[in-house]
Computed example of a mutant assay.
Amino acid sequence: MSLISKKIADAINQQIGMEFGASLQYDAIAAYFDTEALPNLAKHFYQQANEERMHAHKFMKFVIDAGAIVEIPTIKAPQSRFKWAGAAVKLAYDNEIVVTNSINSIAVLASKEANFTTLNFLQWFIEEQVEEVSSADQLLKIVERAGEGGVLFVDDYLARAKGGEGKK
């Protein structure tokens, strides 16, 4: 017996793919910044990639614990080339909005089915997405304010804000 419907399991499986896709996209953005010799921006996005993988694993564990089957969908290749740093950060911000909307859609579905187990589980993600969107929005504003020629200042800002330069 499953604690979640097939419809909810399918939606969460799609979310698992979205989280893994976000992780790959953040790894590609991190590699872009590494290539551009911006170690703190690279470190930030490598950390984001790890966080997204952790989110995918949380969703997987929930599906398994709920008695359903994990079916990871095909994940599209991430974008690896960017015109400038702002385009990479904008992609990250846009991705966080898409992920947030997807999680909210699962919550709506769970609510319609009166599946409080799923609603309770999703609460952590709903709160997490507020932080993720806010953080991505702040970084995007800083990068856009700095402009194409000011990306080194942004990298330096991250070093100070996050406690120093470092590699992955």
Rank of each mutant, 00 (worst) to 15 (best):
E71F: 04
D34Y: 14
E128H: 12
Q14M: 14
S111K: 11
M1V: 00
M1P: 00
I4G: 00
K141M: 10
G164N: 04
M60C: 05
L140E: 15
A85Y: 11
K167H: 07
L140M: 10
V130Y: 00
E113A: 01
H57P: 13
V89Q: 14
Y32E: 02
V133K: 02
N115H: 00
T100I: 09
T117P: 04
I103K: 01
G86T: 11
F82N: 07
V70G: 06
E52S: 01
F125K: 01
Q138R: 15
L119W: 04
I142E: 14
A85T: 12
A107D: 08
E165T: 13
N101M: 10
H57N: 15
E148C: 05
F116T: 07
G150L: 06
L3F: 05
V154K: 07
L3Q: 05
L91T: 10
A114I: 08
I12R: 06
F125N: 02
N40I: 15
A88Y: 11
Q15L: 05
Y26V: 01
A107N: 10
E52C: 03
N104A: 09
Q48I: 11
V99I: 03
R145M: 05
I75V: 14
K90H: 10
M60G: 03
D10T: 00
Q129N: 02
R160Y: 15
N40E: 14
E131R: 08
Y93A: 12
A66R: 05
A68G: 02
L140P: 12
V63D: 02
V70H: 06
Q129P: 02
L24E: 15
A68W: 00
R160L: 14
Q129M: 03
Q15E: 04
T117V: 04
G163A: 03
N104M: 11
S23I: 08
P39S: 07
Q129T: 02
L119R: 06
A110R: 04
D94G: 09
Q123L: 07
K168Q: 13
V89T: 11
A28Q: 03
V151T: 07
V151H: 05
F116Q: 05
L122T: 01
K168W: 13
L158K: 11
N95Q: 15
A110N: 04
L139Q: 07
A77K: 12
K7I: 00
A68V: 01
E165N: 14
K141D: 12
N50D: 15
K76D: 09
S105N: 14
Q79I: 14
N95L: 12
K7L: 01
L152K: 10
I16S: 10
E19M: 11
Q123W: 06
G17E: 10
V130F: 01
G163F: 04
N40S: 15
I8T: 02
I29Y: 05
V98W: 12
E19Y: 08
E19D: 08
